[in-house]
Design a protein around this nucleic acid. Structure first.
Lengths: 203, 203
DNA sequence: TTTTTGACTAAAATATTAAAAAAGTCAGAA
DNA sequence: TTCTGACTTTTTTAATATTTTAGTCAAAAA
């Protein structure tokens, strides 16, 4: 890794720490700079604006997520177990980085095209990962289905939907506690069981 | 129906018209009163406050929904078809009453315990409806499963989750257009197909 | 040349206050 | 029992001043 990139990473890591503790909205560029004992213009040397720093944070978090998910991925396991493990990693990250929730930070950050585009891409990546899982399962004869991509998208959105339901039940902007999170994970796994069975029999 | 209740209904109907057109937040008690050519205190004779009028509206809409859903319910059809029809009714209502979205109106209306309780109850009712469907399907030997209530809850939350995903993709507070709604309906039906299959085989 | 900074400006969030609008009340009329 | 005009109280909204924060730049340090 080049030195410049290393510094960039340090800034991102510093930002993540602040974001997790205080949320994106309540973290200023000055806060981040002070934490790292550098001046604010230094930050702007590596990132054109705050939005791109946030973008860097999002990228980093998801890269870590994908890395871990791929590391824990054991293709020899039955599909259901693979999916269960993935759900566990997913929700561990969900819990760890909940405070990053960009909905909170700058009000219309979610309406920004750059951010939306990045999130779309990341969702696409996760979809591809699930598609790969379903594809391998099909190759092994564990399941049957026509359109892998389609099935993966449906599955992913169902998981995300159940997460969102959990957040909404917890109440808008409260942190979902461990109990609620376990309940959510259980629901996702139950759905997975039925879903996989549903792909198994094409009668 | 008693006369008093009839007047109450008229007020609720008037409120619904306003709410659909302008949203809950931008409708005042005066607006509703003027539409009905009565004075504001008349409204307060039938409802202790605005919250309870909104509560009445919510009740009315969901009662209509449940009525229609039960009217269209044909127990002789295969489960999947029953669920498809239910999804269609669901999303027709979703579209028609989207403007009621209580998230918009009074900011912390969703945090109110009375409203939350009512919504919980209504969700419970819908869950019971689905539980009945799954129960009958089991009796007919179409599907197999252990805990009907549990399965119904999982299914309902998955449907709701997919709806929420649709809303989020459309962008916070924009009205989801017909195309997005059809896509959502399709996803719900695709999930239904897999879900029902998953309940069919308990291998 | 690349990286960093102090001192700056421009933009945005926040607090303050006054004015307007809406919720909700009440004595009394229909 | 149902309804209303006239009222009070509470919330929103609008306007403005103040502070905070994002972002810039010329020049120093590495």
């Amino acid at each position: 890794m080049i030195v410049a990139d290393k510094k960039r990473e340090q800034i991102i890591d510093g930002a993540i720490k602040r974001f997790i503790h205080f949320g994106i909205g309540k973290t200023t560029m000055n806060d981040i700079a002070e934490d790292l004992s550098v001046s604010k213009p230094s930050l702007y040397y590596y990132f054109p604006d705050k939005k791109h720093l946030i973008l860097g944070v999002i990228e980093k978090v998801f890269n870590d997520f994908f890395e871990l998910i791929k590391k824990k991925h054991n293709p020899d396991l039955p599909v259901q177990e693979i999916l269960f493990n993935t759900i566990d990693v997913r929700n561990t990250f969900f819990q760890k980085y909940y405070m990053l929730r960009i909905t909170e930070g700058i009000p219309d950050l979610l309406n920004d095209e750059v951010i939306k585009g990045k999130l779309r891409t990341l969702k696409e990546s996760e979809k591809d990962f699930f598609a790969e899982i379903f594809s391998q399962a099909k190759a092994k004869g564990e399941i049957e289905h026509d359109d892998t991509t389609h099935v993966a998208e449906l599955y992913l959105e169902s998981l995300m939907g159940l997460s969102t339901m959990c957040i909404m039940e917890t109440g808008k902007d409260l942190f979902p506690d461990k109990k609620a999170l376990n309940k959510m994970t259980l629901k996702q796994k139950n759905l997975t069981t039925i879903f996989v069975r549903g792909l198994r029999c094409t009668d």
